[in-house]
């Protein structure tokens, strides 16, 4: 027995001794699951070419992540699935007609330049998928605005490509086939992941239910867009119709649930998250109203990504045990001391 006792070397590891089951990999897996409804709708509307784009994007993202870390002798990190999520998210923002080679270029920029050069997961200050999309948008403007006709409208519209509802909305000529029901179900042209608000809401609801994201950013983001568009209608639309069209067309809802909530690039403070969402919403509407692009979600989120650090610095929660009166009293005492010093 004494021999056995000596053999057992106890580990005096730090507390707590138990930890939750949910790890980084599980969170990323949940995001992948949450994206499936939107992907299914895209395949139904645009055909299997969508799957080719998605596969190229995911495989290339994982390859860049693995290659970079291998090249620089760092611990491999593809096991946490974050590269898969980046690849999947980038593919979701591409038009369904995108050639297969475009996604690897976007993931190269997103994974290597934006994420790995700053130290990998958690260290990047821009959303890698969105930064990749912004890079592609400025490099391949034509390819990135080539919208194929969804299967649901194949008999209704002639030709091979068509304008998105958002373009119609802001040029003042909203065709009849873009009714609210079609917008909600995803019977519209657009980027792979953005078309069906219903599918996005199912995925987003899953993320909130699984506690992967909090409600704060999506609700404040979408809420801000809703309120601003409701208050500032356009001629030819009812105020309410204008709001609903604005909510259901474009990539705003997708961005609010899947892009703006990226952990590394959104605030962690609870009130900071609300402000960040409001900022995203305001910028989206501003770009839609006054900007050169029809859609503003990408740049709105990227700009707010850059403000994240400052927002987090500005919002501390009240210290436990310190009431508002205590803070006011401390302030008054400081002021009095200052005046006494004078």
């Amino acid at each position: 027995m004494s021999e056995k006792k000596e053999r057992i070397i106890l580990d005096a590891a730090f507390q707590p001794q138990v930890r939750t089951e949910t790890d980084t990999r599980r969170l990323m897996l949940d995001v992948i699951i949450a994206l499936m409804p939107a992907l299914i709708v895209a395949v139904l509307q645009f055909g299997v070419h969508v799957l080719l784009v998605v596969c190229c994007s995911v495989v290339s993202a994982v390859f860049w992540e693995w290659g970079y870390r291998k090249l620089f002798h760092k611990e491999t990190s593809i096991g946490d699935l974050s590269a898969v999520v980046t690849g999947l998210l980038l593919a979701m923002t591409l038009p369904p007609t995108a050639p297969w080679w475009i996604a690897p270029i976007g993931t190269l920029f997103g994974i290597v330049v934006v994420k790995q050069l700053y130290g990998g997961i958690g260290k990047n200050f821009l959303n890698p998928a969105l930064a990749g999309r912004a890079f592609l948008l400025s490099s391949y403007a034509l390819i990135m605005a080539n919208w194929s006709i969804p299967n649901a409208l194949s008999g209704t519209v002639d030709g091979t490509t068509m304008a998105t509802p958002l373009a119609g909305l802001y040029s003042g000529t909203m065709p009849a086939y873009f009714d609210v029901n079609h917008l909600f179900m995803g019977y519209i042209p657009g980027s792979i992941g953005e078309i069906s608000t219903l599918a996005i809401l199912i995925g987003g609801g899953y993320l909130i239910y699984r506690n992967v994201i909090s409600w704060r950013i999506p609700v404040s983001f979408i809420g801000t867009v809703a309120i601003v568009t409701l208050l500032s209608g356009r001629e030819g639309f009812g105020h309410f119709d204008w709001m609903v069209y604005n909510l259901f067309s474009g990539s705003m809802v997708f961005g609010a649930f899947f892009m703006a909530t990226d952990y590394a690039t959104s605030p962690v403070t609870l009130n900071g998250q609300l402000l960040y969402g409001v900022g995203c919403g305001l910028l989206t509407v501003l770009i839609r109203y006054f900007g050169g692009f029809p859609e503003g979600t990408t740049y709105a989120i990227l700009i707010m990504n850059l403000c994240t650090w400052a927002i987090d610095k500005g919002f501390h929660r009240h210290q436990f045990g310190v009431s508002k009166e205590d803070i006011a009293a401390a302030k008054a005492a400081k002021k009095a001391a200052k005046e006494a010093a004078k």
Binding site: Q17, R19, I121, Y263, H316, F320
Partner: peptide, 25 residues
């Protein structure tokens, strides 16, 4: 029972802030 990692990387998810009973960050 051991779920510790050798080289953990913070992903800045902020879940620690949500659960801290003392309102810390």
């Amino acid at each position: 029972e051991d779920r510790n990692l050798k080289n953990p990387q913070c992903i800045r998810c902020g879940k620690c802030i949500q659960v801290c009973p003392m309102n810390l960050e």
